[in-house]
């Protein structure tokens, strides 16, 4: 895996060589903070909690993570640099990991840039730091899972628009699975047995993220996100080696 680092470094610094990164960071912050303030009344609620901020993350990620991930492999394919990269002494796995980790680090940065929010809360009230830390952890893990799916999708095409649309679609389905409206529909209208509904909703992002935002770290949730990342990246490698 030693070749992962130079690729990681090039990719991560690469974000800041173009204005796209700064635009992305600004849009991410404005959208995440804006949703919390204007749709959820961050201050009006009068509680020192970040719940209304994290509440929107699964939906925000649905569009912003594909926006960050759509170019990962499709751009390499379109510009032909994939030929350069894979005739250097690197394995496909090293290439996939280097690019994925760089994009994940970039998303983590975007998420952590909201740090003035908890600091303000601490100034105004007495927030539960444990819950906030867990929510951040959950959000970062969820972003990684979304991103791994996007990375896989972007390896399927040299067209970034196709890559974006595919990513949003797949991520949407994965979010929907855990959403209560959807599970109610499955059990209420389709009369699926409860255990089956549970199995299906278990593949949803929101199901696993909710626990984090309540301050609970369940190893099962961590494992869910990590295995989804592992599985998507595995498919990513397979597609590139084809």
């Amino acid at each position: 895996m030693s070749q992962t680092f130079p690729i990681f470094k090039r990719e991560f610094l690469g974000y800041f060589r173009s204005p796209v990164a700064y635009v992305f960071l600004v849009v991410f912050l404005v959208a995440s903070v804006g949703l919390a303030f204007f749709l959820s009344g961050f201050y009006k609620a009068n509680v020192a909690s970040m719940e209304s901020y994290f509440f929107w993350h699964p939906w925000l990620f649905l569009f912003l993570v594909p926006a960050a991930g759509m170019r990962l492999w499709s751009e390499e394919r379109r510009s032909g640099t994939i030929e350069l990269l894979f005739t250097l002494p690197v394995t496909t796995l090293e290439g996939v990991m280097g690019k994925f980790l760089a994009a994940w680090a970039f998303l983590t940065l975007a998420i952590l840039l909201s740090f003035p929010l908890p600091l303000t809360l601490a100034y105004l009230g007495d927030p539960d730091w444990g819950v906030i830390a867990n929510s951040y952890l959950g959000s970062i893990l969820m972003a990684g899972a979304y991103l791994a799916v996007c990375s896989f999708m972007s390896a399927l095409t040299k067209n970034q628009v196709v890559s974006f649309v595919l990513s949003v679609l797949v991520c949407f389905v994965l979010s929907l699975l855990g959403f209560s409206v959807f599970t109610d529909f499955l059990s209420g209208y389709l009369h699926l047995p409860v255990f089956l509904v549970d199995v299906i909703s278990n593949f949803g992002f929101t199901t696993h993220f909710d626990a984090f935002s309540k301050g609970i770290i369940d190893p099962k949730d961590v494992m869910f996100f990590l295995s989804l990342m592992g599985f998507s990246l595995f498919l990513n490698v397979v597609v590139l080696e084809r």
């Binding site: 470094k9 090039r10 690469g14 060589r17 173009s18 510009s79 032909g80 030929e83 002494p89 690197v90």
Partner: peptide, 26 residues
């Protein structure tokens, strides 16, 4: 290997790009 259309990462400078290649080359 020099591929047909000499692909490289356009947003990097010549020095940065060759530095990256050197790093991957060990």
């Amino acid at each position: 290997y020099l591929p047909e259309s000499a692909p490289s990462y356009p947003e990097m400078t010549v020095e940065e790009f060759l530095g990256f290649i050197a790093e991957v080359r060990g």
